[in-house]
Design a protein around this nucleic acid. Structure first.
Lengths: 229, 229
DNA sequence: ATACAGGCTTCTGTATACAGAACTCAATCC
DNA sequence: GGATTGAGTTCTGTATACAGAAGCCTGTAT
């Protein structure tokens, strides 16, 4: 009987789900969506009442939000939503570029045929979204593709860093920049071909150029319509 | 008068220094030093009493220790000192290599003459420690050199990631591996020369090879005397 | 009118109290 | 004898309470 259960109902009935996690997710969503604006003072008691919990889980969530860079915690003054500077945004893009490049190299080393197949599926989804001019779907497809490449890279440490950096990049640039268009997905296709061939050097190079172009693309949008948000 | 004060006593009398920070530092030290062993269950009440504070700051410190990867926080069970696997250690080294490479490239772009001068000073310190066979000083000199290169790179995001990854690498390898010897410092010298010339490609390449050799060096030590700790 | 001082309010930081879940171990039943 | 079930214990997760610091506002004196 034990084996039968192990095979099927591996997942416990319901994870109790610690409140701090729920609060963390809620606050992250509020920050990324822009409901909580950069520089805004977050009062623990207010958040607690608004979310229907006590101050304690809110505090714990705020602590984690700080270490993840979403809020600044000034001693004896509390939490303030982090205000990213242009300089910091540029640094984020640079770091992301090297991490993604490494990710692509590892993926090219490890990719199995079924991984490549899945990559092409994700690529097709992006092309479809592009044809439908569905920006939201396009962003999701782009994220999904990069995330899957990272998972193929099979480096948990790397994956965690990329996830953190990537989310902040999206936070900063989503309000001011549109997603890149057709040529980005052509670059993705090149990348997948390099991974399929198991050519780490080429995969890394393609990814490096890809992220550099994205960086330049963002920079131009920033320069042209800076304060449109 | 206000201007005079601003110039001089910018720093407030004494930062109250939140307790959670002190607890965090204390626990990190206990983990890195090996007093708290991997897998060990950390009971909040015990730590609180031992450190002379209440459970609250201990909890907050444990939360941060989790996000920084030092402990695992299992729901409804509490904190356990993280047990690094060999696989994770390898992943750490890989990530560190690409981050350090990028750091060296940026440093080569930004370095001013006085930075190069300081680099040579730090290098000399390492050579001296090597001559004195003072391992502790040698590790400190190595850390100081790499840290300074990162600071010259002038990328705060990168610096934070390197700091986190680097500390974990040291935690994992310090007990089982000796520091590298003379040839590591020759490589450092090459690196500094590349930075002095303002040659990012060469600096990156030298750093990449340097970290790869360090990785191999660790791997060999691990293979030979695995369970000597 | 302006600058300063004092009290007041508000919020954080810390401690304590309480409820619920997980582990332990012993007693019981097959 | 072995497995299982149940009570008891321990620890986490959450809520509440209290103390201290920082900011604000008002009143007063120059």
């Amino acid at each position: 009987m034990r084996e039968a259960l192990t095979a099927a109902a591996t997942r416990r009935v319901t994870r109790p789900a610690p409140l701090r996690q729920a609060v963390y997710d809620a606050l992250t969503e509020l920050i990324v969506s822009g409901t909580l604006k950069p520089g805004q003072h977050l009062v623990e008691a207010e958040l607690a009442e608004h979310l229907g919990v006590s101050r304690q889980p809110v505090r714990e969530a705020l602590q984690r939000l700080q270490t993840d860079g979403w809020v600044d915690l000034r001693p004896a003054q509390g939490a303030f939503v982090h205000s990213p500077t242009e300089e910091e945004a540029g640094q984020l893009l640079g770091v992301r570029a090297v991490l993604e490049t490494y990710s692509a190299q590892l993926a090219a080393k490890n990719a199995k045929p079924e991984d490549v197949e899945r990559l092409w599926e994700l690529h097709q989804e992006g092309v479809d979204a592009l044809a439908a001019s569905d920006n939201e779907r396009l962003v999701a497809a782009n994220t999904a593709l990069h995330t899957f490449i990272t998972s193929v890279a099979a480096n948990a440490v790397l994956a965690e860093l990329i996830a953190g950096v990537g989310q902040k990049v999206r936070w900063y640039y989503t309000p001011i920049a549109r997603p890149r268009g057709k040529e980005a997905w052509n670059e993705h296709a090149q990348l997948i071909r390099a991974i399929a061939k198991g050519d780490p050097d080429r995969a890394g190079e393609v990814m490096r150029k890809h992220t550099e172009r994205t960086t330049g693309f963002y920079a131009r949008q920033l320069a042209s319509g800076a304060n449109q948000a």
